[in-house]
Design a protein around this nucleic acid. Structure first.
Length: 907
RNA sequence: GCACGGGUAGCUCAGUGGUAGAGCGGCUGUUUUACACGCAGUUGGUCAGGGGUUCAAAUCCCUUCCCGUGUACCA
């Protein structure tokens, strides 16, 4: 090998025969991940003058392990980041993890239950428990970060953040204090979604309305003053009857008009309760009478408020009945109590009927049990900058892709409700509010606490604890995890970093967290930084299994990405996934596709290996280019454009597709197969130089273009092909994209067009010849002779390439060739092509073949003639289209004539 | 209920008015010196159904059906 070896990226000469035939990704990938990091390739400098590109990672839960959704999401971010580096930008991809209050706390609590004897966090105590969670986080919390590194993510790991880092915690508190002072954060007694397993309030977004099979019970309520009159009430929750304080009917319902103002006897925990009239009750549903249970239903609560009704709470925090007045039910679990109460009513003869019924039940996203509407003292946030958030997306300051998600976003913002931000958890940011000692119990009951209470000195709200802590007691609650996540795009950055990299460029995330995260970040960005947090939001598809089901642990249908990386390589996984990732819809995951990614890596490796087996090109004699060289360079130039366009539209599947098809089909199958003889011994050195330099040009450009998707193998080949040393002496990932305008710069457009047409004709001709061979059952590798009766001038070079492509020993170009009777013939763009089969001629077979082809052509001709004989078409279609159709018809007719002539020669 | 997305070859998906495509799979041939993770050939389609607009519809409009997602709820 005559490679020039110098610099630290040099490659030691290796005997090419020792290069393994198959690409083995594992070691290569580990090596480059290590080297990139050692050399600080991922580090973002906040002080350069370069244009910036920045992304903040959607922080995975610190309890998380990598799943396919993460792979999709982070591969896309990595592609964007790597491509931006190639374009000369200063790139920050900021990584980190989320403390995930509920998930992480639950994780450690689970460990406690495994102890003997089992313990709960209450046995441990708040301070020690929080210490335990921190310890767990230090030991197990980094798993997903390691996994992201294995995927090749080029995050600036020096800037890794955690949502409970000290600096971050300060930001969270600062924001709380500011919003409190502004009056947007307040504490109030409200109906909230209560999780009876986790014993905390949840936001509306954390409740999933799920259709469930329930029962609708119709129950008899006796009128107080008439033992023979009954009011029938339908309910799905008989276990809350003891908390009924009224029965409501629609004021327009004639059936009950005379009952208004009277009382019925509550059938359990008996007591008279009024019959009231409320518009809210639908006449047509059930019996038209609705039991009002303000403590256990949101709507009933509002009715209760309107009518000044009493609130009777008969459920404990963990979902058990608390009603000593009804000893049969007191202390029973809520669902057990439901059946039991129905039974009790039946025994009393008060259960009119019981029917199967499907209704929507709110399920806790976290604990998977039905939530309870519960009256509870919680902290709420009235969202800031709602209008700015709407405007930004409406006027295009922030672009959603796919665009239709903007509708979902707007809809949510239109109906936005105050956010319940307090959680009865220990792991998380504790609410920075302190109550004056001695007043604590009084304040606990206060209907609403707000900024005036701080002014009155009853409470203290501050980033720092009060200076006289002995006089204060801190609020017990922690903040919703999303109350820290919504600050992620700026709270992760110091002042310099913010100055350079905020607002960020792109956000890549799943549409399932538009409300949880995306919308809230936008509002926070405007409120606290006075600017949008990002310019583009790319919503990835949701990865599903082949049956279309969401991937989940319980279904066991979620492949382990690390296992996939092991078997197919990170590059294979990335490429395979990008190839099937559609824009705008779900992606059905098929492992076969990942295998394709691996196969593609192998193809690339072998194409590079082929190059390494050749010597070096030399400057003399001057390279003699032929049409196939020019053709592949023109296609390469096209690929540059295609990729830039697809990336601009975030069409990653189109990128992968274009890269795949260029390399496999155009470069390997056509170009390389056409030029192999140029590299054999005895070939014209000028042609050899043209071929080698073309190969190098293509590979050099191609590795750069592919690098963002398959960073490891391209980096490896960049080095081992010697390009690192030759083009800039830097790793590929820090090398700028080569300039595609320099390709073919010395040639006129017309020359290029002619060369491409010639190459295309050559490939088509080869194709026809291969068909002929196959139809005559001649093995691919069977050396045959071709004769070409040229329709255009054929250079010897071209004839040679044709023979090579077809697997023929030669192509004779003979203007006056007369084929023996029955010789298989094809009409090709280069002329009539014969496949003389000395002694093997099968006249009948050739006749059949021609007849078959004629049949096909006849159909096309009919189609075309029908079209052209339609006057409307000729008159109304654009002239261009008509001409095109006419040309097609001429072509078909010409072919037909030719085939008929051949047929005649056979008879 | 409302909104959004989707229905194209056995499978996964491209295809924004002008000759229905790719990869995989199937079948046939092939160990030719980069690659059998390969090469060559080939087989697969009422573009969900119906109607409309148009010279021309997978593509635009209407409608029905099916799948998915979000959202609102009636106890």
């Amino acid at each position: 090998m005559g490679l020039q070896m110098r610099g630290r990226y040099d490659m030691m000469p290796r005997a090419m025969r020792e290069l393994p035939k198959a690409y083995e990704p594992t070691q290569v990938e580990e090596k480059w991940q290590r080297r990139w990091q050692e050399e600080g390739c991922f580090h973002a400098d906040a002080h350069t003058a370069k244009p910036t590109y920045s992304i903040v990672i959607p922080p995975p839960n610190v309890t998380g392990v990598l799943h396919m959704g993460h792979v999709l999401n982070n591969t896309i971010q990595d592609i964007l980041a790597r491509r931006a580096r190639q374009e000369g930008k200063e790139v920050l991809w900021l990584p980190g993890t989320d403390h995930a209050g509920i998930a992480t706390q639950a994780r450690v609590e689970k460990e406690l239950t495994k102890e003997t004897p089992p313990r709960t966090r209450f046995d441990v105590g708040r301070e020690d428990f929080v210490k335990m969670v921190w310890a767990w986080k230090e030991e197990h919390g980094g798993i997903i970060i390691k996994q992201l590194k294995k995927l090749g993510c080029s995050c600036d790991w020096e800037r890794e953040r955690f949502t409970m880092d000290p600096g971050y915690a300060t930001e969270v508190a600062r924001v709380f204090v500011e919003l409190f002072r502004e009056g947007l954060i307040y504490r109030g007694l409200r109906m909230v979604n209560w999780d009876p397993v986790l014993l905390t309030a949840l936001s509306d977004e954390e409740v999933i309305m799920t259709p469930s099979k329930s029962k609708l019970y119709t129950i008899r309520y006796r009128l107080e003053d008439d033992p023979n009159r009954w009011l029938l009430v339908a309910t799905t929750r008989p276990e809350t009857i003891m908390a009924d304080v009224a029965v409501a009917v629609n004021p327009k319902d004639p059936r009950y008009a005379d009952m208004l103002g009277k009382k019925v006897i509550r059938p359990l925990c008996e007591a008279p309760i009024p019959i009231i009239a409320d518009e809210h009750v639908e006449i047509g549903f059930g019996t038209g009478a609705l039991k009002i249970t303000p403590a256990h239903d949101r709507v009933d609560f509002e009715v209760g408020v309107r009518f000044g009704l009493q609130i009777i709470d008969v459920l404990t925090a963990d979902g058990h009945i608390n009603c000593p007045g009804c000893p049969e039910l007191h202390g029973k679990e809520r669902f057990e109590a439901r059946d039991l109460s129905a039974e009790l009513l039946r025994q009393k003869g008060l259960l009119e009927k019981e029917e199967a019924y499907e209704n929507n039940v709110g399920i806790s996203q976290r604990s998977d049990v039905p939530i309870e509407p519960r009256l509870s003292m919680q902290w709420f946030l009235k969202y800031p900058c709602v209008q700015e958030a709407k405007d930004a997306v409406a006027n295009g300051d922030i672009v959603f892709r796919p665009a239709h998600w903007a509708k979902t976003y707007m809809h949510w913002l239109d109906g936005i409700q105050d956010w319940c931000i307090s959680r009865q958890l220990w792991w998380g940011h504790r609410i920075p509010v302190w109550y004056r000692k001695g007043m604590a119990s009084e304040l606990k009951e206060a209907a609403k606490l707000d900024v005036t209470d701080a002014n009155a000195g009853r409470i203290y709200v501050g980033v720092e604890p009060p200076t006289d802590p002995e006089n204060w007691v801190q609020d017990e609650d922690a903040l919703d995890t999303w109350f820290s996540s919504w600050l992620w795009p700026f709270a992760t950055m110091d002042a310099d970093c913010r100055a350079k990299f905020y607002p960020t460029s792109d956000l890549v995330t799943g549409p399932d967290i538009i409300f949880f995260w995306v919308s809230r970040m936008i509002m926070a960005g405007y409120r606290f930084e006075g600017a949008k947090p990002f310019s583009n939001v790319f919503f990835t598809s949701i990865v599903r299994d082949l049956q279309g089901r969401k991937m989940s642990k319980s279904l066991g249908n979620s492949p382990d990405p690390l296992d996939l990386i092991e078997r197919y390589g990170a590059d294979g996984l990335r490429f395979g996934l990008m190839r099937i990732a559609p824009t705008g819809t779900d992606v059905k995951f098929d492992e076969k596709q990942i295998e394709e990614g691996k196969n593609f890596a192998n193809k690339l490796y072998n194409a590079a290996r082929f190059r390494m087996m050749q010597g070096e090109a030399s400057s003399s004699p001057a390279p003699k280019f032929s049409p196939v060289h020019i053709d592949i360079l023109a296609k390469l130039k096209q690929l540059h454009t295609q990729l830039a366009n697809a990336l601009g539209k975030y069409e990653f599947n189109a990128c992968a597709q274009a890269l795949y098809s260029f390399f496999w089909n155009e470069y390997c199958s056509l170009f390389l197969e056409a030029v192999k003889n140029d590299l054999r011994e005895g070939a014209d050195p000028a042609v050899r130089n043209a071929t080698l330099s073309t190969i190098d040009t293509v590979l050099r450009h191609y590795l750069s273009l592919l690098a963002p998707i398959m960073p490891h193998i391209t980096e490896e080949l960049w080095e081992s092909l010697g390009y690192a040393a030759r083009y800039g002496g830097k790793p590929l990932m820090l090398t700028e994209l080569p300039d595609d305008t320099a390709l073919l710069s010395g040639l006129e457009d017309s020359e290029i067009a002619l060369a491409c047409a010639t190459a295309t004709a050559l490939y088509e001709t080869a194709n026809r010849a291969r068909n002929l061979k196959a139809e005559y059952n001649l093995a691919t590798n069977k050396n045959v002779r071709l004769v070409l009766k040229p329709a255009v001038p054929i250079e010897a070079d071209l004839a040679g390439r044709l023979a090579l492509l077809v697997g023929a020993k030669e192509t004779d170009v003979e203007q006056d060739y007369t084929a023996p009777r029955g010789t298989p013939t094809a009409l090709t763009p280069l002329g009539e092509l014969f496949l003389p089969l000395e002694g093997l001629v099968d006249v009948q077979a050739e006749r059949d073949r021609i007849a078959k082809e004629l049949l096909q052509i006849a159909k096309e001709i009919v189609k075309s003639e029908t079209k052209l004989s339609n006057p409307s078409f000729v008159q109304r279609a654009p002239a261009e289209v008509v001409q095109q159709e006419q040309a097609r018809l001429r072509d078909w007719n010409e072919k037909k004539q030719h085939l008929i002539a051949m047929q005649a020669a056979l008879s």
